[in-house]
Amino acid sequence: MPKLIAFRCLSALATLAVVSVIVFWMVEWLPGDAAERLLGRDVTAAGLAALRDKLQLGIAPWSRYGHWLAGVLSGDLGTSISSGRPVADVLAGPAGNTLLLTGIVLVLYFPLSLGLGVWAAVRQGRPVDLAVQLFTLIGMCLPEYVVAIALTSVFAVKLGWLPPLALIDQAHTFGDLIRTLLLPTVTLTAAMTAYAVRMIRECLIDVLRSGYVDMAHLKGTPPRRVLLRHALPNALGPALNVTALNVAWLTGGIVVVETIFNFPGLGRLLVDAISNKDVPVILSVSLLLTGVYIFCNLVADIGSLVFNPKLRSAR
């Protein structure tokens, strides 16, 4: 078991390393060099030369990668080209905002998905189950921006109850904050919860059909106890897995949702940086989000190890 965990951690690190190389080289492999790309066509030769110098374009790519990596490891993420500030400073505010948003989403996510999933599973085939299934299907297959736009159209544009944009910097009271964050939170929670509810429902239905649940009934165990002690613990492993995958999905979801609501988080920062061709910021944000993504996958892996007595006692 410790061996397995160590192996998973190592492969997660390896993945991160591979991603950093890919991200770095993607930016490298462009036609023309980085300086031309960054400054566009109408630029003076002097400006170009100065930037080339600054970006160390004269050095071989590998050593530039090494240099960049050494910087990242020592906490120096470079300087943002569009704002001229250190990337670490540029990142700090949006990272905090994104953390706040995702934190609220997660707090809502767990009880909602567990509750709805179990409720639908034990009422399988009844109206409650069908309603939950319909909701989850819609939540699952609609892209976030469609949900976001639908919500905004109704609650912000038509009814005017909530602000259409989530300008968190302008929220001064707690009430403002809630109103500001409500739509993006609901959008993200809907998509995530839909997946988890479906997963918990399916796993639990499978487990409820299993021999050991049958056996628990046949030894006279009260139904509630069968559900809580025999069925649920064995259905949670896969559900936990989907949770971590969901959190990983959030890294992509926030890009879209933050853009829609103009929420000043990491996702919007990335989109802006890409539009501005701000390479150091692109590299840092995408690596940070990838790191979160890989970390979540790792937690899912280890979680399913810990929750599965079979795997736990192996080796």
């Binding site: 991200v23 992509g252 890009v255 990335l270 995408s286 989000l289 990838t290 993504y293 996958n297």
Partner: peptide, 12 residues
């Protein structure tokens, strides 16, 4: 697979 698809797509 453990690379975030939307972000990789955006970059690409």
């Amino acid at each position: 697979i453990s690379m975030p698809p939307l972000i990789m797509a955006l970059l690409a």
